[in-house]
Simulated scan of single mutants.
Amino acid sequence: MADKNATKTKIMDTAEGYIVQGGYNAFSFRDIAEAVGIKSASVHYHYPTKADLVSAVMMRYTQAFAEQLPDPTDEKFDPKALLNGFIDGFKAKIVDQRDMSLCTMLTSNKAILPEAVCIELAAFYQLILDWLSRVFVRLDQIDEDLGLIQASQLLACLHGASILVQGTDQPDFFDRALSEWKARCQ
């Protein structure tokens, strides 16, 4: 059983790496098999289709992300610190690593994604929007609708800034683009 789970994890890790580097069409099952050191039929055994594999990668990514998020309604957490930590975490994971996020790459391929992958991608974004909304509700003492607007604006800024950094190869654009949001964390 442990070998089976280890193989599934290696397959998902490898697929995630390919997606981050080149999107949904960046790999085939043969590429995964070669990188993991197994037969292509073994990849199909664990994940019958590419949609199954990428959906599993997204589901795992969402679960891992959710586990890292503190409860934004817990009074022991300062909403400014939560917001600052989220922005800094995004920068560390995406900008400092010189990668695009898994979700940004998949979103750029949305027109060709199978429905199952789109559902998992939407679930990830909804998780972030819900969490950020609750942070903004506490931070600014606003209603949920305004919290969602601010969450949407911040998320758009984060993704836009990461694309700008990749496109220009100038990491300082991230800090410039996020300067107003970071000022709110002071």
Rank of each mutant, 00 (worst) to 15 (best):
S40F: 03
H44S: 15
Y45H: 15
H46A: 09
P48F: 12
A51F: 08
V54H: 07
R60H: 09
Y61V: 05
Q63I: 09
Q63W: 04
Q63F: 06
A64G: 14
F65I: 01
E67V: 12
L69N: 03
D71C: 06
P72D: 08
T73E: 13
K76A: 12
K76F: 04
D78M: 07
A81L: 07
A81S: 07
L82A: 05
N84Q: 14
I87S: 00
G89R: 02
G89K: 04
F90T: 09
K91V: 03
A92P: 03
V95F: 01
D96Q: 13
Q97W: 01
L102G: 04
L102R: 05
L102W: 07
C103S: 09
T104L: 10
T104K: 01
L106T: 09
L106H: 04
T107F: 10
I112E: 14
E115N: 11
E115G: 02
C118Q: 13
I119E: 12
I119T: 13
L121G: 03
A122P: 03
F124W: 11
F124G: 01
F124R: 05
F124Y: 15
Q126R: 15
Q126S: 15
W131P: 03
W131S: 07
S133P: 02
R134N: 09
V135P: 01
V137T: 11
R138E: 07
R138N: 10
R138D: 02
L139N: 04
L139K: 09
D140H: 13
Q141M: 07
I142K: 06
D143L: 05
D143F: 08
D145E: 14
D145M: 11
